[in-house]
């Protein structure tokens, strides 16, 4: 198990390095002058020269890359040109919105999706099953921005239970901050919960027909007990894969919902940074997203190995 985790961690580090290389050289070595790109075609030569020095563009590419990576390892992501502030601080501020939002959405989708999937599988072919599956179908089909607007109309405009948008920083009032995240996380969680319910149901239905369930029943368990003791854990394997992918999607895919609810999250930061051609900021934010996604994948892999002993072995049998 330790060897397994070590190997996966090595892979994780290698992925990060590759991503850093790709991000750096794609943004930096493409034809054209980054300084020119940032300032636009109307910029004066003097201004360009100042910015070049400021960005350190005089040094050779590999030195700049090493400098960039070394800086990030020490927590220095460079300085944003448009906002005139350290990139690390900007990203950190925004992560305080995006990460709780993604986490909350994740928790919601697991709490709603998994039980619904189990219920649908338990009463397969009955009315409950059909209704849950129709709902899940709609949940996947409805766009989250539209669902977000519906939620706002109902809970913020008509009922006035929750704020329609905006965000109060955690340091000012944690309770208000949390209230601001409720509607957006519901909007985000809906499609994910629908997918989870479907996957959980299919996995459980598959597991019902497995030989080891018959063995468990032969031991003296009823179908329900056999499913509960032996089926659910086996059915969780495919669900775990989907969960990992979903968390990655939630972290990177909050941009639309952030816009609907006027949340100052990472997605909006990147969106504006691209619009303002702030290469340093885009680069820093992108590597943070890559880090979040690969870390999620690493955790999924390790969780997988914890559940399934076959994956802990060196060679497949």
């Amino acid at each position: 198990m330790i060897v397994f985790a070590l190997r996966r961690t090595l892979g994780f580090a290698a992925t990060l390095l590759l991503a850093a290389l790709a991000i750096f050289f794609l943004l930096d070595l493409l034809p054209g002058d980054p300084a020119q790109f940032i300032l636009g075609i109307s910029a004066t030569p003097e201004k360009l020269a100042v910015l070049r020095t400021q960005l350190g563009l005089d040094a050779p590419a590999h030195e700049r890359f090493v400098g960039w990576v070394w800086g990030m390892l020490q927590g220095d992501f460079g300085t944003s040109y448009t906002q005139q502030a350290p990139v690390a601080g900007l990203i950190w501020e925004r992560l305080a919105v995006t990460l709780p939002l993604a986490g909350l959405a994740m928790i919601l989708s697991v709490l709603v999706g998994l039980p619904l999937g189990i219920i649908a599988a338990r009463w397969r072919g009955k009315g409950v099953d059909t209704s849950i599956m129709v709902l899940a179908q709609m949940g996947v089909a409805v766009p989250s921005f539209w669902f977000g607007m519906l939620l706002t109309l109902l809970f913020a405009v008509a009922l006035r239970w929750l704020p329609p948008g905006g965000f109060t920083p955690w340091s000012e009032n944690p309770l208000l901050a949390l209230r601001g995240l409720v509607l957006p996380s519901i909007a985000l969680a809906l499609p994910q919960a629908s997918i989870l319910a479907r996957v959980m149901r299919t996995a459980l239905v598959d597991v019902r027909g497995q030989d080891f369930i018959r063995t468990a029943r032969a031991k003296g368990l009823t179908m329900g007990e056999a499913i509960w003791r032996h089926g659910v854990r086996n059915a969780l394997l495919p669900v775990l894969t989907i969960l990992g992918l979903q968390l990655a999607i939630l972290i990177t895919g909050t941009i639309i919902v952030e816009n609907v609810f006027y949340l100052p999250g990472l997605g909006r930061l990147i969106f504006t940074a691209i619009g303002e051609r702030d290469l340093v900021l885009v680069r820093g934010a992108t590597i943070i997203l890559v880090l979040a996604v690969t870390a999620t994948m690493l955790l999924t892999d390790i969780a997988y190995a914890l559940v399934d002993p076959r994956l802990r072995e060196r060679s497949p049998s």
Binding site: F212, A218, R233, N234
Partner: peptide
């Protein structure tokens, strides 16, 4: 009643 089935490969829970 004790039961023994044909497929020993799949008749045991792989995770336990």
């Amino acid at each position: 009643i004790g039961l023994v089935f044909q497929e020993p490969m799949t008749a045991l829970n792989p995770l336990v």
